[in-house]
């Protein structure tokens, strides 16, 4: 029996190594400064992916700026203000529902609501808003858990010094919960930066360099999808895939390190 369990663990690790290894080995040779800084030529058959990187940054920024305050605010409300009642249950169910709606349904919604109904047209801004909605439940759920994990004694200590409830939350509870909240925001944004289906009918898929966030664009995952399914250039597809994998790895490692360092400093170890 032991062997079976060990095998299951090892298989999981091997799957990851094979996928990441394959993408990196095939993709890294395609990556150079020109690939990162140039615009695509002939729909991406040659040239680089600079507009896609900029598009990805734009949509992720919009998603973060919109979703982080909403998610953290909701988490604070549920953890600190609301008791256990019907509204709270409904809010939790709402977040779960939002988390489980398929990305393509978000895409249809983005198209019919932001692009057409609100008249935003195809733009990175509209795409960012769709991604914000997708990132919201993750940010909310992780933030709520980490706010609730802050010891009650911190809150009592602050209240006993004459701080108001909001001062206590703002100056003591949130700083103590920051590592968890950061992790939640990053997880949410990692989901946003990897998403293609939800934005394929919203961002307009333009190849040119977006100047403002209200321009159409084509984030990296969507570019990879188009390159691969339309058979435009496998070499560049591998390059794009590798860039995304590296990006995700960097984000994960950097966040983990920062969070750990902050925790160490805070707890004086």
């Amino acid at each position: 029996m032991q062997t079976v369990f060990w095998a299951s663990g090892i298989i999981t690790v091997i799957i990851l190594l094979v996928i990441i290894g394959y993408i990196l080995i095939k993709g890294l040779p395609a990556i150079n400064l020109e690939f990162l800084l140039a615009e695509p030529i002939d729909s991406g058959e040659s040239g680089g992916i600079a507009p896609m990187i900029v598009s990805s940054i734009y949509v992720t920024l919009v998603a973060g700026i919109v979703a982080a305050p909403l998610g953290v605010g909701a988490a604070v409300y549920l953890a600190e203000y609301a008791g256990e009642n019907k509204v709270v249950k409904l809010i939790r169910f709402g977040a779960e529902t939002l988390a489980s709606i398929p990305s393509i349904v978000f895409g249809l919604f983005g198209l019919s609501f932001f692009v057409i109904f609100l008249g935003m047209g195809w733009s990175l801004f509209a795409g960012g808003l769709v991604l914000a909605l997708m990132a919201l439940p993750t940010i909310f759920q992780v933030a709520e858990v980490s706010i609730e994990a802050v010891p009650r004694s911190y809150r009592e200590g602050s209240l006993a010094l004459g701080a108001t409830k909001w001062e206590t939350i703002y100056r003591v509870v949130l700083p103590a919960a920051i590592p968890g909240i950061t992790t939640g925001v990053i997880l949410g944004l990692a989901r946003a930066i990897s998403e293609a289906a939800a934005i394929m009918f919203v961002v307009g898929s333009a190849l040119s360099m977006p100047i403002s966030i209200f321009d159409p664009g084509r984030p990296l995952p969507l570019h990879l999808y188009v390159l691969a399914t339309e058979g435009i250039s496998m070499e560049n597809a591998f390059g794009t895939a590798a860039v995304m994998v590296i990006l995700i790895l960097i984000i994960t490692v950097v966040t983990n390190t920062l969070v750990e360092r902050y925790q160490k400093k805070m707890m004086g170890r």
Binding site: F5, G9, I23, S194, E195, L224, Y225, T252
Partner: peptide, 30 residues
């Protein structure tokens, strides 16, 4: 069952697997 050292490999492995974009999975499949 897993010893601590191996768990330290598995945990980030699973997190990374969860973080790989679905298009990359699709591309790998293709």
């Amino acid at each position: 069952i897993a010893p601590k050292t191996f768990r330290k490999i598995l945990k980030p492995t699973i997190e990374t697997l969860a973080g790989i974009p679905s298009v990359v999975y699709g591309f790998f499949g293709l």
